[in-house]
Amino acid sequence: MTRPIILDLTPDAQGMVALLAALQVPDHVRPVLVLFSGQAARVDVAMAHARDLLRAYGLADVPVQAGCPGTLVQADGVGHDLPPGNDGLGAAHLVQAIRACPQHGATVCCAGPLTTLALALVQAPDVGAHLDGIIFSGGAFHTRGNATPVAERNIAADPEAAATVLAAGVPLTIVPLGCTERLKADAVWMEQLAVMGASPATMAARVHAELVAARNGGARGSGVDIGLAAVTPLLALLSPGIFQGHLAHVNVERQGTYTRGMTVAVRGAGHDNALVLESLSVDAARGILRDLLLLATR
């Protein structure tokens, strides 16, 4: 049975890799909405590229929208019905897409901050009943954060949004930084994907070119390995057996000057609200992702 999925992606090469990979398994998943959140100029480019990709796969009817660029609360702690400077359409489209799916049918795979998803759950609490689950990349439990020493970037970007999602009562799977930090596009893996760029006019070649550009964009073009955390929510949905994890009750620190955005997982205390994936087989993950991307060249 084909599962409807909603992809909330980062507007970069990694986000395009996730979308291209998702399009290779139509018997398993079918995107029903694609969202991008981030800097407006990058989002516009990513949306145009995503529409081209979907059109090439006969999915021109799948909406591609911008997510919420703001946060749920102002710096002074005052709550918003909408993030500042945002019209809420990203969340509205998300609510519409979820409601159009069978009850307990859709899965949201989120690779960036959780603002759009949180706003949708606040504006329309009933949509939780339509979700089979939410899988998101975020949090740092047993490793140093990449936004602050204790906080991971996606959670630190909007701790209130993360707390809202964690409290929504929807089945959650969290792919934290410690699980994803070794999953990278390195030179060996990129060489395996070189065939993607053999026909420059194809959509696969376009995604491959973005990956190459991303790797060559750092350290004077020396080919710096780039993280593939944005792809892990999709991998966790398609191949859960390559991950290991545990149930826990997860909280987000929202008050501390130095600890804001920190995620804390408590095991064995009851009231578990998430499956925390603590490790994955990097070789298996890289192999699955490689094979999915190479399918796009056939």
Score class of each variant (00 low, 15 high):
N86E: 15
C68K: 01
G70Y: 08
H104W: 06
V32T: 14
A40N: 10
G67W: 05
A41L: 12
H93P: 02
V73T: 13
L89D: 13
Q96F: 04
G58F: 07
F36C: 01
L59E: 08
V78I: 12
C68N: 14
D87F: 10
R30S: 10
D61V: 08
G79I: 10
A48P: 00
R30F: 03
A40H: 13
A50K: 00
G38E: 07
G88K: 08
R42V: 06
L35Y: 03
C110W: 02
A66T: 05
A92D: 15
I98G: 00
C68L: 14
L82C: 06
G58T: 07
L89K: 12
C109E: 06
D81N: 13
L54S: 02
L82V: 09
M47G: 12
R30D: 03
P63R: 07
L59Q: 10
P69S: 14
A40Q: 12
R99S: 11
A91Q: 04
A41W: 10
V32L: 04
H93A: 15
Y57W: 09
G67H: 05
R99N: 13
Y57Q: 06
G67E: 06
F36I: 05
V73W: 13
A50H: 02
G77K: 08
R42N: 12
C109W: 03
L94G: 06
A100E: 07
C109F: 01
L59H: 05
A50E: 02
A48T: 14
A106W: 00
V32S: 06
G77C: 11
D52N: 11
Q74D: 15
V64Q: 02
Q74A: 15
R99T: 11
P83F: 01
Q103K: 08
V34A: 06
G58K: 07
G79S: 15
P83E: 04
P31V: 03
L94N: 04
V32D: 02
D76V: 08
G38V: 09
I98A: 00
A41P: 03
V34Q: 02
A60H: 10
N86D: 15
G70E: 07
A75W: 09
Q65M: 15
R42Y: 10
R55K: 09
P69Q: 09
A100R: 07
A75G: 12
R55I: 01
V45E: 12
G70H: 07
P84Y: 12
Y57A: 08
V108A: 01
A48G: 15
